[in-house]
Amino acid sequence: MANINDFTQKEKQNALDEARIIMQMKVFKMKDYERVAYYSEEDAKVYYHNLTGSDMGDIVEEFEGEVPFSNTVY
């Protein structure tokens, strides 16, 4: 296992930057069993539209909003 002292200052800073970016993301419930992690509600809808080809009107209608990261589907 790597020791924290094995990393350069730049590598440490990059890891911190990545962690900050991930922490800014939110999880949005698109349908009963589908979630999208993105920075904003609007971006999540556009991403989901591009991914699935679903009609934007249907996406807006079925969109359930932000959910906690711990909200998992089994």
Rank of each mutant, 00 (worst) to 15 (best):
A15C: 04
L16W: 15
L16T: 08
L16E: 13
L16P: 00
D17E: 07
D17Q: 11
E18Q: 09
E18W: 03
E18D: 10
A19V: 02
A19K: 03
A19L: 11
A19R: 03
A19I: 06
R20S: 06
R20Y: 13
I21W: 14
I21H: 15
I22S: 05
I22L: 14
I22N: 06
M23H: 15
M23T: 08
M23E: 15
Q24G: 11
M25I: 04
M25K: 13
M25G: 05
M25A: 06
M25E: 12
K26I: 03
K26D: 05
F28I: 01
K29E: 07
M30F: 08
K31A: 12
D32M: 05
D32F: 01
D32V: 03
Y33F: 09
E34M: 06
E34C: 11
R35H: 12
R35Q: 03
V36C: 04
A37M: 12
A37Y: 03
Y38E: 15
Y38Q: 05
Y39D: 08
Y39N: 02
S40M: 05
E41N: 05
E41H: 04
E42L: 15
E42M: 08
E42A: 15
E42C: 12
D43L: 06
D43C: 04
D43E: 15
K45T: 01
V46K: 03
V46F: 11
Y47H: 11
Y47S: 01
Y48T: 02
Y48G: 02
Y48I: 01
H49S: 13
H49P: 01
N50E: 13
N50S: 14
N50A: 13
L51W: 11
T52E: 03
T52I: 06
G53A: 07
G53Q: 03
S54C: 14
S54T: 08
S54G: 06
S54H: 10
D55E: 15
D55V: 10
D55I: 10
D55L: 07
M56R: 05
M56F: 13
G57L: 07
G57K: 14
